[in-house]
Design a protein around this nucleic acid. Structure first.
Lengths: 167, 167
DNA sequence: CCAGATTTTGTTATGTTATAACATTTACAT
DNA sequence: ATGTAAATGTTATAACATAACAAAATCTGG
């Protein structure tokens, strides 16, 4: 069973109240960092918010541009340091095949993710299928390989965009 | 069942006759291109050979440097065009999480691959497990997502390097 | 073989993504 | 308050990739 239909990263596009889901993500991030003694500084929070505000995976230089809009001058290291922090805290994921970043809808526990990336609408849905992950882990363990990180990204066309195509 | 133990990209390091496996790969590439009416030009073949000669995934600029050694001046587009050709023909794979390229040990049929990437020895093993791929495809199809390309990369420590660590 | 079309390669410039190195400021703990 | 650690600012550059156009090589039909 996947949580494809109840994740914020689904392909449901604008059909949900994104403002609410962003603010919930931020709230959750604040409380998590509090608990962990990690410092969610203004810059870090701002970057996290920008990532969540965008429905699609966002590139570091897009974030840089957004941050620089207010006339403030921001340099790449600032953005990358914030991204590093958010990645470490599990608050965002990096999509390797896009060089881009997305918010994680359940940062409280470490987990592997499978991303379904639509080449039409650019959205990336995070899928969790325990049975699948188990089979994968078993296969890898059977080989004797000690896995530390999984990069699982499927590219194609999401259900919505397939429908749109046919109409 | 995986072919982990009978692939040229395994973690067996220098325990096999790599010269032979490179020349076989090149021979196979030539015959494949012949059959398909694709032109394996000197540059393309040279790039393929360089990739096979290296046990690890190779970056485009490493290839560039190798090509430029003979005093010839080679520019990035030359390398990237060769890589594009080789990717199209399925003669190499790109490892997204490394921005690097590896030779494909069975280019005759299109296929998905799962890569096990060792962060100690840098080798990347291509694994094929039909049952696993089937389960993955079923999961994705069940969601209604039309997959076109899979990026499956597991990072960790290979069996050999684990042994080496303990000794 | 030749002329035109197509493919491949050369060349220059630039775009995009990411990090190194070091200075300064801010927050924290005693 | 003061020393220490963490975070941020700043400058420069590394690493990865492609656009655009010119020249050369190859293929194809007459």
């Amino acid at each position: 069973m996947t949580d494809f239909n109840n994740t914020h990263l689904s392909f449901d596009g604008h059909s949900h109240d994104h403002k609410t889901c962003v603010s919930e993500a931020l709230k959750s991030a604040r409380s998590l960092c509090e608990t962990r003694g990690a410092r969610l500084t203004p810059i870090r929070q701002q970057v996290l918010e920008l990532i969540w505000n965008c429905h699609k995976p966002v590139g570091a230089y897009d974030l840089l541009a957004s941050l620089s809009k207010d006339g403030e001058k921001v340099a790449p290291p600032t953005v990358y340091r914030a991204l590093d922090f958010l990645l470490e805290q599990g608050l965002i994921h990096r999509i390797e095949s896009l060089n881009a970043y997305v918010g994680c809808p359940h940062p409280e526990t470490e987990h592997s993710s499978l991303f379904l990336i639509c080449r039409t609408c650019q959205h990336a849905a995070e899928v969790h299928d325990q049975r699948l992950f188990q089979k994968l882990s078993d296969t890898i363990a059977g080989i004797g390989f000690a896995q530390e990180q999984q990069v699982l990204e499927i590219r194609g066309i999401c259900p919505d965009c397939q429908k749109a195509d046919r109409s």
